[in-house]
């Protein structure tokens, strides 16, 4: 009996590091999403130790429901922007290297409509913008999820056929406007390679 308890305790201890956690991000240049994308944050950001998909990393200031900064470090051809619940029967829209800014806006819209069950998604702006020193795009959108209106700003560009993008999402009430300048500063600091 004792041996059994010891084994279980050991298994629990071993499993512990796999539990989702948040780590403080140092305010120096860091590479993100295990890619060549790098940014320089200010102090106070926290990194989620779980990767939602292979090329995504998430940060937050006050918790992901209140503000979320997602880094997409090179989404490859035919890859989705989120984890697919059922790849065969409920596929998510996929990235295509020939996409323009308007296509990326539609890609995000369709993904969020499905993954966040947000039928009132509205794109508010799609415009050209420099990202990591080259011409890219800037998008603004809003949607309701869980009875909370959320707003998002995405900036990015396609480099070597892959999508590099940073997305800031937060509730429209207070948190989006409050967090956007700090998120925008991180987007401004982006470098690829």
């Amino acid at each position: 009996m004792n041996a059994k308890i010891m084994t279980m305790a050991l298994a629990l201890l071993l499993a512990a590091p796999a539990v989702a956690g948040w780590k403080v991000v140092a305010p120096t240049r860091v590479t993100v999403a295990q890619s060549t994308l790098s940014v320089t944050p200010d102090a106070g950001w926290n990194r989620w130790t779980v990767k939602p998909i292979r090329n995504e990393e998430r940060w937050s200031l006050d918790g992901p429901l209140l503000n979320r900064l997602s880094f997409y470090g090179g989404i490859a051809q035919d890859e989705p922007l989120a984890r697919e619940r059922n790849r065969k029967r409920e596929p998510l829209p996929k990235f295509d290297r020939t996409m323009r800014a308007t296509d990326i806006a539609e890609l995000i819209e369709r993904t969020v409509r499905i993954t966040e069950e947000a039928p009132d998604f509205v794109t508010e702006a799609v415009e050209p913008a420099t990202f990591a020193g080259q011409p890219g795009f800037r998008l603004r959108y809003r949607y309701t999820a869980g009875e909370l209106v959320r707003r998002g700003e995405a900036r990015g560009r396609i480099a070597d056929g892959r999508l590099y993008m940073i997305v800031f999402t937060a509730p429209a009430l207070h948190y989006f406007d409050a967090g956007l300048p700090r998120a925008a500063a991180i987007m401004d600091s982006a470098r690829i390679g």
């Binding site: 323009r100 800014a101 308007t102 806006a105 794109t123 508010e124 702006a125 799609v126 415009e127 050209p128 011409p135 795009f137």
Partner: peptide
């Protein structure tokens, strides 16, 4: 149009 800036850039051949 909300995507005016992006579409204008495409219309201008950018």
């Amino acid at each position: 149009a909300v995507d005016r800036a992006a579409l204008q850039a495409m219309a201008d051949g950018m």
